[in-house]
């Protein structure tokens, strides 16, 4: 099992080699950081909570609107090759368990979430220092990072399932976009911890760095969605293989 998994991870890495997909994860957070920092500097009269205020401006739209769509784009890209011509046949006849085939893609998506989040927090730190924030970097950022990564993986699982079933590259991205908007609604109704698209912004404490969330419920909700969509995806692959 372990060898199979390593082989599929390597194969997925090869598929992504020299692809410019990382560029989107690089560019969008830069735009968001630029816009967030400008907004913070322009409204310092109201935003007086230093690092926390800066984070609220950085994460305001990125986490609830742009990241779900970006994750959707990446997941669509991961299934793009399989949907071309007769590649499904080659993919499903690979002599490795279907679960490993799926996990190979999920690992790549999770890796991109970790790197993307790392980049977002690096930009946050850099912009804070450039803005002249002297206070020490908030230690809570590590928790936001970990929870955000977990929430991001949930969106990956949902999007991987959708992109696997839907042959079109664009539709799953449209769904993630609408899902992200729905996440704002769910969050405002107090249902954010139970809606997969808002788990990322909840984990990152987007727009509300001092928000207290129930860690147990958050982790349980994430694990539930990850397991659910992994099982659904593997079941979908089994149906495909028949």
């Amino acid at each position: 099992m372990h060898t199979h998994l390593m082989r599929t991870i390597k194969a997925e890495r090869l598929k992504l080699k020299r692809s410019p997909v990382w560029l989107a994860f690089f560019a969008l957070p830069v735009l968001s950081a630029f816009f967030g920092t400008n907004n913070y500097l322009a409204n310092q009269g109201v935003l007086q909570n230093e690092w926390f205020s800066l984070w609220s401006q950085h994460s305001l739209f990125l986490c609830s609107f742009f990241m779900p769509a970006l994750i959707g784009t990446f997941c669509s890209y991961l299934w793009r090759l399989e949907h071309l011509r007769t590649n499904w046949n080659s993919f499903l006849t690979t002599p490795v368990p279907l679960l490993c085939l799926y996990l190979g893609k999920l690992v790549q998506a999770a890796k991109m979430i970790v790197l993307g989040n790392g980049w977002i927090f690096f930009l946050y730190f850099l912009c804070g220092r450039l803005c002249g924030l002297d206070a020490s970097f908030p230690p809570q950022a590590l928790e936001w990072f970990l929870c955000g990564t977990l929430g991001g993986i949930v969106i990956c699982c949902v999007q991987l399932a959708l992109s696997m079933v839907i042959r079109s590259f664009a539709i799953p991205i449209g769904i993630s976009l609408v899902g992200g908007i729905g996440g704002l609604l769910a969050g405002s109704q107090g249902l954010g911890l139970f809606y997969p698209y808002s788990l990322y912004s909840f984990g990152m404490r987007a727009n509300n760095p001092q928000m207290e969330i129930d860690g147990k419920v958050f982790v349980l909700s994430c694990v539930f969605y990850v397991v659910l969509f992994c099982r659904l995806s593997v079941a979908g692959l089994q149906r495909h293989a028949r």
Binding site: A24, L31, S32, L70
Partner: peptide, 8 residues
């Protein structure tokens, strides 16, 4: 991605 960047 161009559409997303345009949105931002």
């Amino acid at each position: 991605v161009t559409g997303l960047c345009g949105s931002l």
